[in-house]
Amino acid sequence: MLTKRIIPCLDIKDGRTVKGVNFENIRDAGDPVELAINYAKQGADELVFLDITATNEKRKTLSELVTRIAKHINIPFTVGGGISSVEDVSVLLNAGADKISVNTSAFKNPQLINDLANQFGSQCVVLAIDTKFEGGDWFVYLNGGRVKTETKTIDWAKQGVALGAGEILLTSMNNDGTKDGFAIDITKAVSEAVNVPVIASGGAGTMEHFSDIFTSGKADAALAASVFHYKEIGIPELKKFLKTKNIEIRI
């Protein structure tokens, strides 16, 4: 049976791993390649690298980093952050990335999703959505959570999949950095609304949070950063725990 996936996320700034709280207060968390190798050895199912600098002059640094990662790890990885064109994606996939994620640029130009899916296949196009619960509903936020839109998260997720996104990476800004658990309601709603896998992100603090998001939240994968970086949860222990909860997992 297809397993649920555990995905450590590494935020990258100027070629280093960094970690913030609620999208702010960024601090250094080590060399991305070293961390990636370590995670792969511990049993991570996949990795996500989000480049939070993502300015044009940093592009080359990023594609070099992607190649270093691809040379060293034997599990799949996604690269995101500031990707806005077919050309950007082509460079990263050629550098060795398995998938790419698009966020703000896709919202502003939905046709980009379609172009990427046609050119490279839906399987490598991840639509990242930052979402926040406000005034009774979940809305899409852009630019790393700084800009609110009036679009409901469910609507954008459906549209993105219709355009060709092969996976949704859903980050709840209300939960991110809190360690109080993933956003179960919106994850479940999105997972039931689309027929592609949904990766839940934001809020992981305990092993129970992971089992909850897989069962109640109907997530296909769960992404976390700080609990893994700061070794608050070990991936082998987490996977053993999930197995005891009868969740299909690769050990």
Partner: peptide, 19 residues
């Protein structure tokens, strides 16, 4: 096929680890 699926419907593509 979506209809051939497991409980709750198959997600397509299949992405992830399987035996």
């Amino acid at each position: 096929s979506q209809t051939e699926g497991v409980k709750g419907g198959l997600k397509i593509p299949q992405i992830g680890w399987n035996t």
